[in-house]
C-alpha cells in the first residue's frame, strides 16, 4: 500500500487533529461523561489508522517505529500497575482509591444525586484512565501498523 491520492491525503491531514482532540477529550473526561480510557483510546487509534491508510504503511513506519509503540504500551501498563500497588502502600488493599478525600489532586467527593460535573473529583480513576488510554492507543495502532506493513511486503501472492 503506497498511499492514496492527494485529495485523500489532504482530507486526512485536516481531519486528524479533530479526531485526536475528540479522543483525548473522551479520555480526560472519562469519570464525568460517557467514555473512558478504552473508548477514547480506540478513537485516537482509529484516527492514527486513517493516517496510515492515507499515507501508506512504509511512510508511517518511517515516522514511528514499532519498537517505540511497544515501549509506550509497556509504560502504560507499568503506570496502571504502579497506581494499583500504591493503593496497597497508602491504603489497605490492592486497587484502593487512596487519593479520594485527600487535598492533593482529584480529591473532592461530589454530593449525592444529579450534580454539575467537576473535573477535580474521583481520586486515582482519571490517572488510571490516562494510563489505560496510552496503553490502548499504542496497542491498537501497533497491531494495525504491523499487520498493514506485513501485508505489503510481498506482493507476489
Amino acid at each position: 500500500m503506497n498511499g492514496m491520492s492527494r485529495i485523500v491525503k489532504t482530507i486526512a491531514s485536516i481531519t486528524f487533529p479533530l479526531v485526536m482532540i475528540y479522543g483525548l477529550y473522551i479520555i480526560a473526561h472519562g469519570h464525568l461523561t460517557p467514555g473512558g480510557g478504552f473508548q477514547g483510546g480506540a478513537v485516537v487509534a482509529s484516527g492514527c489508522a486513517m493516517i496510515l491508510i492515507a499515507y501508506g504503511s512504509v511512510w508511517t513506519l518511517g515516522k514511528i517505529k514499532e519498537k517505540n509503540l511497544s515501549i509506550l504500551e509497556s509504560v502504560g501498563a507499568i503506570c496502571f500497575i504502579t497506581l494499583a500497588i500504591l493503593g496497597l502502600g497508602f491504603g489497605t488493599v490492592f486497587f484502593k482509591n487512596f487519593l479520594i478525600g485527600s487535598e492533593i489532586i482529584f480529591g473532592i467527593i461530589p454530593s449525592f444525586g444529579s450534580t454539575i460535573s467537576n473535573i477535580n473529583t474521583a481520586g486515582v480513576i482519571p490517572l488510571m484512565n490516562f494510563a489505560v488510554g496510552l496503553k490502548v492507543i499504542a496497542g491498537l495502532f501497533g497491531i494495525v501498523l504491523i499487520m498493514a506493513y506485513a501485508s505489503t511486503r510481498r506482493d507476489k501472492y
Binding site: T33, G113, S114, I116
Partner: peptide
Amino acid sequence: VAPIFTSLPSGTEI
C-alpha cells in the same frame, strides 16, 4: 437512563 450522574434528567429515581 444510563448510570451517569452528570446533569441527570429531572425526576429520575436514583
